Amino acid sequence: MEKDFNIFLEKSETEIEEMPIFKEYAIDFKTGEYIKKGNDIKVLEENEALKVWIFKALKTERFRYTDVHSDEYGSELQNNIGTIYHKTVKDALMINQIRDTLLVNPYITECYNFVISNEDEYVPQITFNVKTVYGELEMEV
């Protein structure tokens, strides 16, 4: 008897649902304030909206605002502040935490090419690429 498990792995064309266009309110990345367009807040779409979502998800402490966000939203990067790990261990932890934070979003498919610069010993700058359903982005934390 031949077993075909592909029926569990592949969705038929009728089962695949298209995701709506991703939208987010525009913010000033330096101040965190919303950007207005006339009397309304400017709305971004696709990758520009995902940049805002990524920024906010990485800045929001996971498990702190459970009345507003699910347990999957937010990052645990702040847990690394003041830790005394070897640099390679700390870098690996931060990379994994960034991936865990971002890959809960169904519009984000991959995070890669992490570069961690430690010019400031206490607050490293991390640049990385994000592959989304709309293309690729370069982000900095």
Rank of each mutant, 00 (worst) to 15 (best):
H69P: 00
E72Y: 09
E45I: 12
E121Q: 09
E15P: 02
I7A: 05
E13M: 05
V130M: 05
D28P: 02
W53G: 01
L103N: 07
E45R: 11
H69G: 00
D100Q: 13
A92P: 00
E17Q: 15
S12N: 15
K42P: 00
G32C: 07
D71G: 01
T83C: 09
I21S: 10
T66Y: 04
T83H: 08
I98W: 14
Y73K: 08
K11V: 05
E33P: 02
Q125P: 00
E140M: 12
E46Q: 15
V89F: 10
M19T: 02
E2F: 11
L44F: 08
S12G: 15
I54H: 03
E121Y: 09
N39K: 15
I84W: 10
L93A: 10
L9F: 09
T132F: 04
V104A: 05
T88K: 09
S70F: 02
K51C: 10
H86A: 11
T132G: 05
E121G: 00
T132W: 07
A26S: 06
V130R: 07
D71T: 06
Q78S: 15
K3F: 09
I116D: 02
E18Y: 02
N105S: 07
G135P: 01
V130N: 07
E15N: 10
L50E: 08
I108A: 04
I84Q: 12
N105M: 00
V89D: 11
E13N: 07
V104D: 06
D28A: 01
P124T: 05
R62K: 15
S75Q: 14
S117C: 09
K11L: 15
A49G: 07
N118P: 00
E136N: 13
I95W: 01
S117L: 11
A57M: 09
V68D: 02
Y134Q: 06
G32A: 02
D28K: 03
N80M: 10
L77K: 10
N118L: 00
I108H: 05
Q125C: 04
T60C: 04
Y34A: 06
E76C: 04
G135T: 03
G74V: 03
R64T: 08
T60S: 08
I98M: 08
K87H: 09
N129I: 00
T109S: 04
N79H: 11
N6V: 01
N96M: 15
K59C: 11
F22E: 13
K3D: 03
D91L: 02
I41Y: 15
E136V: 03
K11S: 13
K59E: 15
D28S: 03
F114G: 03
V141Q: 03
Y107G: 04
